[in-house]
């Protein structure tokens, strides 16, 4: 199957499988979590695969012990479970000891839309990005996901890769260099939308709507949330153009905060509007589209909100 036709999870684990076949130091630990793309790992590379059971804290610290014994370790579960549940273990056992362990979380934002706040990942990126030494990737397409498998293998240090459950159109060419941390995907003279993950795709729909109102918006994909490439971000935002950040995550701490921090630290005077989930948990059990409508994150609401804000 083509890479565009598979899930982010399968794109990641297919790429990781190819790496692990070449290097038996690569270990994959899951928190009692399976997937068809993991099956070949557990059958073909059984000595490199461990199901650590429903015990994420233990899994993180086991990963630390393996990493200090020469292994390159990946730990995998649903996004909040592999981050928030074991946050202190990630801080102390991965970041303080600067270990080559990558946490892979599936279910970015409202991927698990019908599962409630237990499974929604709306704070994970915000808390992971503040950890010293932690690299946080929030991919928007499968080309990027496969590249992150390789980058996380090659680059030492702790990392968090946050995968969506949906399939998205490809936005990047094969062999794109993702070391910049962000990309200007669409130019626009009137304003800039900075988005990440699935919201990059929402941003394309929003810009089409804005164009009907003669607003030409640029789109920036901020796919590495930490460390942020400040200089490039300031450069692509342009001078004095209004900036809107777009994420499903809680507004506090998320990409809106990242952009606000970069602007404040660099004396950037542009207007900034941060769109995302306002200070609440979502107890609606519905499709992602329904949740977006409920939260004002559907294309129409975002477009209306931006137009009103620009006036």
């Amino acid at each position: 199957m083509k890479i565009a036709d598979i899930s982010m999870r399968d794109a990641f684990f297919d790429a990781l499988y190819d790496i692990a076949r070449q290097d038996d130091r690569v270990m994959l630990l899951t928190g009692d979590f399976g997937a068809p793309s993991l099956d070949k790992f557990r059958t073909d590379l059984s000595r490199q695969y461990i199901n650590a059971g429903v015990a994420e804290q233990n899994m993180v610290t086991i990963a630390a012990g393996l990493a200090l014994s020469g292994k390159i370790v990946y730990i995998y579960s649903i996004a909040p479970f592999v981050t928030l549940r074991c946050f202190e273990q990630i801080k102390l056992d991965l970041c303080c000891m600067k270990l080559h362990v990558t946490a892979v979380g599936v279910g970015a934002g409202y991927s698990y839309s019908t599962s409630g706040p237990t499974h929604h990942a709306t704070e994970d990126a915000a808390v992971m990005r503040i950890l010293p030494g932690m690299t946080v990737y929030n991919p928007s397409d499968n080309i990027m996901v496969a590249a992150f498998a390789g980058m996380s293998y090659r680059d030492p240090g702790p990392k968090y890769i946050r995968l969506d459950r949906e399939k998205f159109p490809l936005r990047y060419e094969e062999k794109h260099d993702f070391s910049d941390g962000l990309a200007l995907l669409k130019r626009g003279k009137d304003m800039t939308i900075i988005a990440s993950g699935m919201m990059v795709h929402q941003a394309f729909k929003v810009t089409e709507e804005l164009l009907k109102h003669s607003i030409d918006a640029a789109i920036v994909d901020l796919y590495r949330l930490s460390p942020v490439n400040d200089n490039l971000l300031l450069q692509v935002m342009g001078k004095n153009k209004p900036v809107v950040t777009l994420a499903e995550d809680l507004v506090a701490g998320g990409i809106g905060s990242i952009v606000a921090e970069v602007m404040a630290d660099n004396g950037c005077q542009s207007r900034l509007k941060r769109l995302g989930t306002e200070n609440q948990y979502v107890f609606q059990y519905a499709s992602r589209e329904c949740l977006h409508s409920h939260l004002g994150l559907d294309v129409a609401s975002i477009t209306t909100g931006i137009l009103r804000w620009l006036q």
């Binding site: 461990i50 630390a64 202190e88 273990q89 000891m97």
Partner: peptide, 29 residues
């Protein structure tokens, strides 16, 4: 702090984590 002190296998101080670290180390053996 294992990053500073020769012979220290694991940075510790927050309780409850050393046995898991030992499991990873023993698995690696």
């Amino acid at each position: 702090d294992r990053t500073a002190t020769p012979g220290v296998e694991m940075s510790s101080g927050s309780l409850g984590q050393g046995l898991s670290f030992g499991v990873g180390t023993a698995l690696a053996a």
